[in-house]
Design a protein around this nucleic acid. Structure first.
Length: 436
RNA sequence: GUGACCGUAGCUCAGUUGGUCAGAGCGCCGCGUUGUGGUCGCGGAUGUCGGGGGUUCGAAUCCCCUCGGUCACCCCA
């Protein structure tokens, strides 16, 4: 066996069968949930002018450091998308579709950072955005869809944490007050958090260090610096969640990674996953971002969710395994392969899931392949069948009985369609979910 | 970017203080009389022991560099 000359770059990974079946199923579940709520798919470029992702704000340095950016051959400063929202907003500003604009996406996202579990240089996200609605009910819809999606995966041990950032002005006032408050107490903070307290005061409140935690128990919270309208918005969101029966924890110290959030911010965190990269889905309202990208003042809310982390959480709960029997029929042909070729095509044409062996392998090898394929029945063509224009139909799984039947080729399709009817799935969907 | 640990067949891993240490299980391929899978039996293939350099009579085993993985910091999906 030749030694591999190349391997996937640091922080990237290949998703292959059988694992990729879960990805198919996850995407199918996601698109099903959101399309029923009126969201349509957006496919936008994987790279943009860097300004789309890099704006003047507090966190710009960190964002820039982790950006996969480069100059293309035309001298343009390009960056690979680090998250989904900015691209969608750019497309919105460029095309100015009617609002409310409700769209979803599934995309790779790139961040140049060090790797650990649930954290990659190329990871994959699904998400959605609702642009053009300031209504707190829009926040509620977005959160409800997130919850519905997680439920569809079978996840149940997940907590919703919710917070509000208020308006841009509320937030600015609060951050100033907090910075001053922390500045007076720097010595009490954990040494590692002191610089952060001045640069990113809200992040300091989010610190996991015990010393910082206890030093900031009385720190001012965003909730005390909200305008009346902001309070009203948040209360309406919480009322909506209550009404829909969606449980949540108020998390006054919750800080999201991007600075563009206003009002509602939220995260879904699995309680069973014990590491720093636990958040599987997060989002919130970003009423200022559209203007920042040159569009008209437009309120908006959305979420993004990392597929790799979702699957880690599913594994931790033992849910969302995908059934492996993805074939109805396996055609075994020991006469050279011409029959396999034609029968396979004919059966696929009527919607059956069919595979065969290549390279004219022996009977035993082909039967083993048939068994491994998970097919319900094997259709066998040997010399005898070929002479009599028939096929042997052999059940491979117990609930189809043990009897092997000889069926004329002319009625093979009818025979198989009838026999397989009980287990056939809709031919337009080739994945099924099965919770353990 | 900083630090810790790790890197042996496709997969999961054994390899004692450097001297038949290149292995096991699973998987894969073939065979078990001439055409039938799953169980069982027999046989077989696959690795320059992540890569490069060094120490040594001799290194998978020690040292250095490098690439990759895991974890923590950082940051975040």
């Amino acid at each position: 066996m030749a030694r591999a000359k190349f391997q996937a770059p640091k922080g990237t990974h290949d998703v292959m069968p059988p694992e990729s079946a879960r990805w198919e199923a996850l995407l199918a579940a996601y698109s099903s949930v959101v399309s029923r709520a009126g969201y349509g798919l957006v496919q936008s470029p994987l790279f943009e002018e860097i300004g789309v992702f890099q704006r003047d704000s507090e966190g710009a340095d960190a964002v820039r450091k982790e950006m996969y950016d480069f100059s293309d051959k035309g001298g343009r400063h390009i960056a690979l998308r680090p998250e989904g929202t900015a691209s969608v907003v750019r497309a919105f500003v460029q095309h100015q579709p009617p609002t409310p604009w409700k769209v979803w996406y599934a995309t790779p996202a790139f961040r140049y950072e060090n790797v650990q579990a649930g954290r990659y240089r190329q990871h994959h996200q699904v998400g959605l955005e609702l642009l053009g609605a300031a209504d707190p009910d829009a926040d509620v819809e977005v959160i409800a869809l997130a919850a519905e999606f997680l439920t569809a995966l079978g996840l149940s041990d997940v907590k919703l944490q919710i917070n509000t950032m208020g308006t841009v002005e509320d937030r600015r006032r609060y951050v100033d007050a907090l910075r001053t408050w922390l500045g007076d107490r720097l010595d009490a903070l954990a040494p590692e958090d002191r610089e952060k307290a001045l640069v990113h005061p809200m992040r300091a409140l989010d610190s996991k260090r015990r010393q910082t935690r206890s030093a900031t128990v009385d720190a001012p919270l965003i909730g005390d610096h909200l305008s009346e309208a902001s309070v009203g918005h948040f209360e309406r969101v919480l009322a909506g969640l209550d009404s829909l029966g969606i449980a949540y924890d108020l998390a006054p110290r919750l800080v999201r990674g991007f600075d563009y959030y206003t009002h509602t911010t939220f995260e879904f965190v699995p309680s069973g996953v014990d590491n720093a990269q636990a958040t599987i889905l997060g989002g919130g309202r970003y009423d200022g971002l559209i203007e920042e990208l040159g569009g008209p003042p437009t309120p908006a809310v959305g979420f993004g969710s990392g597929i790799e982390r979702l699957l880690i959480a599913c594994d931790a709960e033992g849910v969302f395994s995908v059934r492996q029997d993805r074939l109805d029929v396996f055609v075994v042909d020991v006469t050279g392969g011409s029959h396999a070729r034609d029968i396979t095509a004919a059966l696929r044409a009527v919607g059956l899931r069919v595979d065969r062996s290549f390279d004219n392998r022996g009977m035993r090898a082909q039967m083993k392949a048939a068994d491994r394929s998970g097919a319900a029945v094997a259709v066998i063509i040997g010399d005898r069948e070929a002479e009599s224009a028939s096929a042997a139909v052999r059940p491979l799984r117990q609930h189809f009985g043990a009897e092997q039947a000889i069926v004329p080729l002319t009625s093979l399709v009818d025979h198989l369609t009838r026999v397989l009817a009980p287990i056939r799935t809709d031919p337009t969907t080739n994945t099924e979910l099965e919770n353990l």
